[in-house]
């Protein structure tokens, strides 16, 4: 093999790799291949659900393992007129609405939420970007709140509508009933032994500990039990899912 053919081969190889890379992008835009590419989410969800006990707990930590600084991400202040009024009133007149496919729609104040049996947990928050922070969260189990509202058997998903607006529409997220009734899924009003700050989602932040950060919706204003995610937002179950193709199943 002469040097020239070797050089041609190396150049050709590099060129081929480049073509392959741009080929990947072209492929990802083909509807058929895109469906295959996006099927990974369902496969991973199926495998994880098969391997995982329904109530398997996310790791919990001790106070000395907590992050010294728990950074904020996404929206750190909804800054709407309504929200700012609630902040000024220290959320005294704020109410959490629970409706949709329930027998007894609820309107809960922070005092009502505090009256439910409480769960406190020190857990790790994993951002989809790669960083992690460990903090303490406290609030009632979502499952108990949903039981109080009497979720109907026709419900399949729980949708959280938030105070922060993204392009004029509220941020929203959704989980299925397995995660909704998981013991670590709580409506946190306290973080690190203080009321949840505005930056971290005051007055209520959903904690759904077996998922990445973006599922843990801040500024929760309303909770609805629904039979289908179609017709809500763009139908993919959440703001990031609708707009930038994040996976709805964020357990990985």
């Amino acid at each position: 093999m002469t040097l020239i053919t070797r050089r041609t081969l190396v150049t050709g190889g590099a060129l081929g790799a480049g073509l392959l890379l741009s080929g990947c992008d072209k492929l990802a835009q083909q509807p058929g291949f895109r469906r295959i590419l996006f099927s990974g989410e369902k496969i991973n969800m199926g495998l994880q659900r098969a391997l995982m006990d329904r109530n398997a707990l996310a790791p919990e930590f001790t106070p000395d393992q907590m992050s010294p600084v728990f950074r904020t991400n996404g929206n750190s202040n909804p800054n709407t007129a309504d929200y700012n009024r609630h902040v000024a009133e220290n959320f005294a007149n704020w109410r959490l609405d629970i409706g949709g496919l329930v027998d007894r729609p609820l309107r809960l104040s922070l005092t009502d939420i505090g009256a439910f049996p409480q769960r406190a947990q020190i857990t790790r928050h994993d951002c989809v970007e790669g960083w992690s922070a460990i903090g303490k969260w406290q609030g009632p189990m979502l499952g108990n709140v949903l039981k109080a509202a009497g979720v109907r058997t026709s419900a399949r998903y729980i949708v959280f509508t938030c105070a922060d607006l993204w392009g004029g529409a509220p941020y929203y997220e959704s989980i299925d009933l397995i995660d909704a009734f998981h013991p670590q899924t709580i409506l946190a009003w306290a973080m690190n032994d203080k009321r949840v700050s505005v930056g971290h989602g005051a007055p209520i932040r959903l904690r759904v500990e077996r998922h990445l950060g973006y599922k843990n919706a801040k500024y929760v204003m309303r909770i609805d039990a629904v039979a289908s995610l179609a017709g809500i937002g763009l139908g993919k179950g959440g703001y990031w899912e609708d707009h930038v193709n994040y996976d709805w199943y964020a357990g990985i």
């Binding site: 990947c24 990802a28 295959i36 590419l37 996006f38 099927s39 990974g40 989410e41 496969i43 991973n44 989809v128 970007e129 990031w240 930038v244 193709n245 994040y246 996976d247 990985i252």
Partner: peptide, 14 residues
């Protein structure tokens, strides 16, 4: 594009 990188990565991880 983090979302699309993740789609590739988590499918081909399998």
């Amino acid at each position: 594009n983090l979302a699309i990188s993740r789609r590739w990565h988590l499918l081909f991880a399998l």
